[in-house]
Simulated scan of single mutants.
Amino acid sequence: MRLMSVVALLLLMLTGCAKHPLYTQESYVFGTRVEVSIYGEPEARARRVTAQILRDFDQMHHSLHAWEPGTLERMNGIFALSPSKAAIAPGMIPIIRDATRYSEQSQGLFNPAIGNLIRLWGFQSDTFKAKLPDPAKIAELVRANPQMHDIVIDGILFHSTNPAVRLDLGGYAKGYALDVAASYLRSQGVKNALINIGGNILALGQHGDRPWRVGIQNPRAPGPIATLELRDGEAIGTSGDYQRYFEVGGKRYCHIIDPRTGWPAQGVQAVTVLVPPSAHAGTLSDVASKPIFIAGSAGWRAAAQRMGVANVMFIDGQGHVELTDSMKQRLRFEPRS
């Protein structure tokens, strides 16, 4: 979710003490604010690599957007004509296979194939109305049971065995973009950087002689509920009910849809996961928070274990904070006013 203001404040505090340059540039991609910070590089070089990252993000946004003209929207049109087949863009093959693997690992709680449900609730748009969908239509889409394994890739061709499949990679793309950006920065010899896509954050190296420090948004108050120091290669991701939501009859309905019911997950305010360094740390930090959120108070620990995530902060609907043992060692909670 969007922790940009918290991170920006922390970076400003750190910049004031910096002996070497900190270059930071912001943009708006994936429907959220994006910030790239590079430490200790000449400004011209930092500006050049940052510009390339933002160009890559913009290309990914258009390619992976489920509702605007582009690669994914074209694929969704083919899925709806099942069993029609078409040639697949080569770059989509590893993404589809990777998202399918995560979906199976989560036992279906992470399910990018439910794009039609997301559209029914109106969350495919940056703006949405405070209006409940027809329960009968929700039930119909749940019965259709679109799954990632309904997508078949055969050589250069793809199709779906279920016309109800509509891919929405909103819970995957930001993390994937983090990994792409981190790989590019490493290839350019940049050792110290912080990439923030709406609160999905990946760190490289350090901010001078100290680790990068980021804040985790309090889901019910301005500012951070806690801060932590990110080590080289670590990624952090948060899913919450406090940015994309509407209220009807005093009840909050957020954008995180439970594929089992077709309704927004309830009883959870936020989930934050911290993922150790790997080639896919960003992707996992984006994906894993969703099934943990949907699993709720009774099932979040089991969901975290299935996703292979040890560092978790879970905040229930009443604001009670639960932590895994390893996450307790990493967080510094802010004093309550």
Rank of each mutant, 00 (worst) to 15 (best):
H62W: 14
I225Y: 01
C17M: 14
A89N: 11
Y23Q: 03
V7Y: 09
H65I: 04
D134G: 02
V6A: 08
P224D: 07
E35W: 06
G208Y: 04
V275M: 03
G122D: 03
A173P: 01
G233Q: 00
G223Q: 07
R2H: 10
L12N: 15
L132S: 14
A51K: 15
T261W: 12
A66G: 14
V214Y: 00
P291A: 08
K129A: 14
H62T: 12
N192F: 03
D154Y: 06
P83E: 04
P276C: 09
Q107P: 01
A265G: 15
L185F: 07
G249Q: 06
G175M: 02
Q243S: 03
G108A: 07
L54I: 14
A203R: 03
S103C: 11
I216K: 00
S82Y: 05
R336F: 09
G240Y: 00
S326L: 15
Y28W: 12
P264Y: 08
A130L: 00
A139C: 07
V49T: 13
W121D: 00
R33K: 15
R143E: 09
V36H: 11
E229Y: 08
A130E: 02
A80R: 11
I88E: 10
A177P: 05
N111V: 07
T15K: 15
R55L: 09
P83T: 06
H65G: 08
V36P: 03
G237D: 00
R220E: 00
S106I: 06
V312A: 03
I53P: 02
R55Q: 12
E35G: 10
Q124E: 15
A281K: 01
H159L: 10
G223V: 04
I78L: 14
P83M: 06
V29P: 00
C254L: 04
A182N: 02
R220M: 00
S289I: 01
E234A: 05
Q243F: 02
R210S: 14
A181S: 13
L185Q: 02
P224Y: 06
A193L: 08
V49H: 13
N218T: 00
D126H: 12
K137N: 12
Q217S: 05
Q266N: 10
K174S: 07
A281M: 04
E334R: 08
G237R: 00
V36S: 06
Y242C: 00
G262I: 10
I114D: 04
E104N: 13
L117Y: 06
Q147F: 09
V275F: 02
V180E: 11
P42Q: 13
V49P: 10
T71H: 04
T261L: 12
N218Q: 05
L178Q: 08
W212S: 01
L228G: 01
D232H: 13
C17Y: 11
A182K: 05
W300F: 02
A51P: 03
R213S: 13
M13C: 11
Y23S: 07
G249C: 06
N192R: 06
V273H: 03
I96Q: 09
T100Q: 14
V312I: 06
R55P: 01
I96Y: 13
V190D: 10
L167A: 08
L9N: 15
V36T: 10
I236L: 12
D98W: 01
Q124Y: 13
T161G: 11
H280D: 11
K19E: 15
G249K: 05
S289L: 08
W300T: 00
A203W: 01
Q206F: 10
S160P: 07
S239G: 11
A99M: 07
V321C: 03
V49Q: 11
V165S: 05
A304E: 02
I38D: 08
V190W: 14
F246I: 01
